[in-house]
């Protein structure tokens, strides 16, 4: 029993981590007033970069870090079109969703002799050092070794983001930019700069999310590695009411739903067919939205390009 509970907890944390990174990315971007449905594409690109870099360099941490950098570079396109060129942000985000997977699969085929799959990647290190891990060996706590250091980092990001957004001057400016950009402009703070920084941060976070998918969840990159997690993360962000701590809770809940699907699917005495169970996280998302969406605080200027001098 204890063992099963720990296993379920591990699975929940594993599934929640990539969602958490990506959803936090969504939070930063949308709080500053830039809609970002390109997260899915950035995650795919991040997943590709992480798997490839860690295969060639042998270091999963380097892969993880570079995935964040490359995620930032890819989202820069979205930033330029939607902030400077005032493009429709949904369309621009859609473009990212084509570009990210396209580049990733093309380069995978180029690098690995026409195969759309990357070779197995090394997992991100566990939070416990080897010496401590050996002590757990044979006890119920053995499964705890599975907690990835990136999971810890994701939760640290939640705290960091919460602190920046709600306890610092910069956070206030970011939130104001998403609510009423003209006010921020009047204060002499550049709306454009704030939005660029936030969108870039969201790209980096989404890149981390993708990296975690390919390194620690599926342990290689393929065209279906990310399979809609970017969109699920957006749902988690909305359900989390655009707040880092709320988003954390919704990601944990969705992670738990995914873990349940895996656990039931794995057991033979399943009373429901597997495909029906696999609908569960998606159905749960819709139900959650039905129950909670009424009290949402959508950033008012979200999705609207800011033209200097307008109100």
């Amino acid at each position: 029993m204890m063992n099963n509970m720990i296993l379920a907890l591990m699975g929940t944390l594993m599934y929640a981590t990539p969602l958490l990174f990506a959803a936090l990315g969504g939070v930063v971007s949308e709080l500053s007033g830039v809609m970002n449905i390109g997260i899915e594409g950035v995650m795919t690109f991040g997943a590709f970069v992480a798997a490839t870099v860690s295969f060639f360099s042998g270091s999963s941490i380097l892969g993880f870090a570079l995935a964040g950098v490359c995620g930032g570079v890819l989202i820069l396109l979205h930033a330029i079109t939607s902030i400077s060129l005032r493009a429709d942000q949904t369309i621009s985000g859609t473009a990212i969703n084509f570009l990210g997977p396209g580049i990733s699969v093309l380069l995978t085929k180029k690098l690995f002799d026409g195969s759309a799959f990357s070779p197995p990647a090394t997992k991100l290190p566990s939070i416990f050092p080897q010496a401590l891990a050996n002590r757990f060996h044979g006890t119920v706590f053995e499964a705890l070794n599975g907690i990835s250091s990136a999971t810890l980092f994701a939760f640290f990001c939640v705290f960091l983001l919460w602190f920046v957004l709600y306890k610092t001057k910069w956070g206030l400016r970011i939130r104001a930019t998403g609510e009423y950009p003209a006010a921020v402009d009047t204060m002499g703070v550049s709306v454009t700069t704030v939005r660029y920084c936030c969108v870039l941060a969201s790209g980096v976070l989404a890149g981390f999310g993708g990296a975690f998918m390919s390194l620690s969840v599926t342990s290689s990159f393929s065209p279906v590695t990310v399979c809609g997690h970017g969109f699920i993360a957006l749902a988690a962000m909305i359900f989390g009411n655009w707040k880092p701590h709320g988003t954390m809770l919704s990601c944990l809940l969705l992670g738990f739903a995914m873990e349940c699907t895996t656990l039931w699917g794995g057991s033979n005495n399943a009373w429901l067919p597997v495909p029906i169970m696999e609908m569960f996280p998606y159905l749960l998302t819709i139900v959650i939205l039905i129950l909670f969406v009424g009290e949402l605080a959508t950033p008012k200027a979200n999705g609207i390009p800011y033209v200097k001098g307008s109100h």
């Binding site: 473009a95 969703n97 570009l99 997977p101 396209g102 580049i103 093309l106 026409g114």
Partner: peptide
Amino acid sequence: PREIIKIITG
């Protein structure tokens, strides 16, 4: 690779 059309489309 065919994926180039995805890139072009994007």
